[in-house]
Design a protein around this nucleic acid. Structure first.
Lengths: 199, 199, 199, 199
DNA sequence: CATGAATGAGAGTTCATTCAT
DNA sequence: CATGAATGAACTCTCATTCAT
C-alpha cells in the first residue's frame, strides 16, 4: 500500500535504530566514566546497537557529539534552576543544591569542555558557546542569591563570600557514601554547610 | 661522584639527561593537566630533554611511569600525615587538612588509578598495590581522628559520621578562588567546615 | 504519455525526478571538474534532486555511470565526425577539428577510462568496449584524411606523419585564453597549425 | 666502540630506509599515474620499502607530500629555464621547449595543485605558494621571449600573440608516438610549430 | 646507553552500496 | 519506486613500543 510507505506526506527510509537522545545519554555516561580523552567512538558504538559508522548519521564528528552532550546537560540544569522560587533565599539555595546534586557530575563533565577542538566543527563551537553562557547564567544566579543572603544577615561575615560560594558549590562533589536518596542527601549536605560540623 | 662526571659531562659530551625524580615530576604535572588518557609519552618527551625512546631506560612502559608517579605522591602524603601529632584531635584534623590541601590534586590524580592496565606490567601492579594500601592507611587515620573527635563531643550528632568525613575530605577540592597561600586557605576551609556558613 | 504523467505528477506528488540523460550530463561535468577519482556518488546526488540511493534506480554502480557517460560522449562525437563531407581533405580536417574542439575535454574525460574497474559490471565493460571501438573509429578516419592530404601534397614531408597527426589532435588541448567562440577558435588553431608561427 | 655509535658528534638512530628524494620521485610518478585523488598513502607505501606509517617520518600528512613534490618539480624547471642564454630569441625558445618537454607532465601535475587542502598544513601552504610564484616566473620569461620575437619580426601577425604562446606551450602535451629521444622530439615539435604542417 | 627510524595496532572518518519502510 | 538509515571496507593519521646504529 502506498500509505504504508508514507509518513505524513513524505516517503521514509529505514527506521533509525536509536534516537539522538539515547546517543547523548550513553555519551554522557561514557565521558563521565572515561573522561574526554578516554571516550572513543568505538566505545560509544559498543554501547549502542549497530556499526560505528552509523553514529555519523547523527553527528559529523566526535567533537560535535560531546559538545551536544554538554549543551544538553547544562541546558537542563538551567531550565530547572531558573524555575526556582527565589522568595525565600535560604530555601532557594537549598533547592538549588538539590538540582546541582541531581547533576553532580556536571562539573566534572564540563571540566573537559576546553579539551574539545572546535576548529573543525562550527556546530561544536556553537554548542560550547551555549555551555559557556550557561555557566555564566548559573554563576549570576548563585551570586545573586548569596548577595541577598548576605544582606539578610544569613551568612557569617568572617569568611569571604567567594569562599562560602565555592564551599557551597563544592558540596556537590561529596561522594554519597551512605547511599541515601538525592533529596535527603542534598538536605544533609546543606545542613552541614549551614551549621558546620561542630556541635 | 667521579663516574657520574665521566658519564655525564666529560667523555661523551652527551646531552644532559634527567633523573627519575624529574621524570615523575613532569609526569605528575602532565597527568593532572591532561588526565590519564590525555597523557602520552610523546607529550612527556616534549617536556624532557632527549628522545622519546630514552624514557624506556627508566621505565618499561607507560603504565609503570604513571603507577610509579602515583605511588610516589601518595607515599609522600602518608609520610607527612603520619608525622602529625594527634594529641589534640581538632588541631590534628586541621593539620591533616593542610597536608591534603598541599596535595589537593591527589584525589584527582589517584582517581585515574583504575584506568591503568596492569596486565602487562608486574611493576605497575605492585606500585598500584602500594597506592591502594596508602589509601587504606589514610582512611584509617581519618576514621581514628573522627571517632576520637566524636567521643570528645566535638562533632554534631544529627549528621552521620561518614557524611562529616566525606564533607571534610571533599573540602580539598574547593577551588581557591581568592588565591591566598595554602596554610591560610586550609584554615579558612576548616573554619567554614567547623562553624558552618550561617551566622 | 499518460503513464508518465501519472507517475511523475499526478498520483504521488513526489519530488520531480530526473532523466538518465540529465544524470549523465551532470556526471560529465563533475568528472571533468574533479577527475574520475574525485567523482563521488555523494557529489553527484548533491547536484541532482532526490536521495543518493535513488541513483541506483538508473545504474547499478558508480562504474556503470561513468562508463555510460563516456560512451555517450564518444558516440556523439563519432556521429558528428562521420557526417563530415570528406571531398575536400583540408576542409574536412578543419571541420573535424571544429568537432573536436567542441568536445575539447573528450581526451581528458576518456583518459580516465582505464581507471574504471570493470570486474564488477558487465554493463560498464560493454560500454567501455564501445568507447574503445569509438577511439579506433576516430583514429581510422583521422589516418585516412591525413594519408589523403599527404598524397595530395598538402603536408610537409620533413616531419613524420604521426607527428603531424599528434600535433593536429593535440591542438584541442590549447586553452582558449582569448575567449573567442569555438568556430573561430578552431579556425585560428587550424591556421596556426597549417601555416606555422613564423611569418 | 663508541665511535661506531657516533656520526660526527651525534648519536644516531637507525638508518632511514629511503631518502626524502626517493619518496618524492615515487610520489611524482604516482600522482601522474593516478591523479591527486587517486593518490593514496597506501599506494605510496606499496612502492616504497617499509610500513605506511613510516612515511610520517618525512611529512606530516598527504597534502605536504604532494605539495613538496610539486614544489621540487617546478623549482627544478625554473632553475633550468633561468639558465638559458636568451641572446638569440628563437634559439632560446627552442631550448625552453626542450626543458618543458623534459618535464612534459609538469602541467598535468600542477593542474591538481588547487585540489590540495592547505587548511591543515602550513608547510603545504608555503610550498604551494612557491609553486604559484614559479608559475608566474615561467610566464614572465615566456612573455618576454615572445614579445622580443615579435619585435624581431619573427612571428606572424595575423594570429594573436596569446594564441601563439598557448600553441607553443601546448606542444609539450603532444604524445611522442614515434619514441624519438626528447632533444630530437622537441626539435620536431618546434619545427612543426614554426613552419606549420603545410608544405 | 641514547638515538631516530620503523612498526603495527587502533582511532576518526568517508563513501559505495544495501536494506527496511 | 524513492527514501534515509545501516553497513563495512578503506583511507588518513597517531602513538606505544621495538630495533639498528
Amino acid at each position: 500500500m502506498y500509505f504504508e510507505m508514507l509518513k505524513g506526506e513524505v516517503i521514509m527510509g529505514r527506521k533509525p535504530s536509536y534516537t539522538e537522545s539515547e546517543l547523548l545519554d550513553i555519551t554522557k555516561k561514557l565521558v563521565l566514566e572515561h573522561g574526554y580523552d578516554g571516550f572513543h567512538l568505538k566505545l560509544l558504538s559498543q554501547h549502542l546497537p549497530g556499526a560505528r559508522s552509523t553514529i555519523y548519521q547523527y553527528y559529523a564528528n566526535k567533537e560535535e557529539i560531546v559538545a551536544a552532550c554538554m549543551k544538553r546537560v547544562i541546558s537542563s540544569v538551567i531550565e530547572k534552576a531558573s524555575a526556582i522560587d527565589e522568595t525565600d533565599t535560604m530555601q532557594a539555595l537549598q533547592e538549588l543544591l538539590g538540582i546541582y546534586v541531581d547533576e553532580s557530575k556536571l562539573h566534572q563533565l564540563l571540566g573537559d569542555a576546553h579539551k574539545i577542538n572546535t576548529t573543525n566543527s562550527a556546530a561544536a563551537s556553537r554548542d560550547l558557546d551555549v555551555v559557556e553562557q550557561g555557566h555564566t547564567t548559573l554563576k549570576i544566579q548563585l551570586t545573586r542569591l548569596f548577595q541577598r543572603a548576605q544582606q539578610e544577615k544569613n551568612l557569617r561575615e568572617d569568611i569571604p563570600l567567594p569562599v562560602l560560594i565555592g564551599g557551597f558549590f563544592n558540596l556537590i562533589n561529596t561522594p554519597n557514601m551512605i547511599n541515601v536518596p538525592n533529596p535527603e542527601w542534598s538536605k544533609l549536605l546543606f545542613q552541614m554547610w549551614i551549621g558546620g560540623a561542630q556541635r
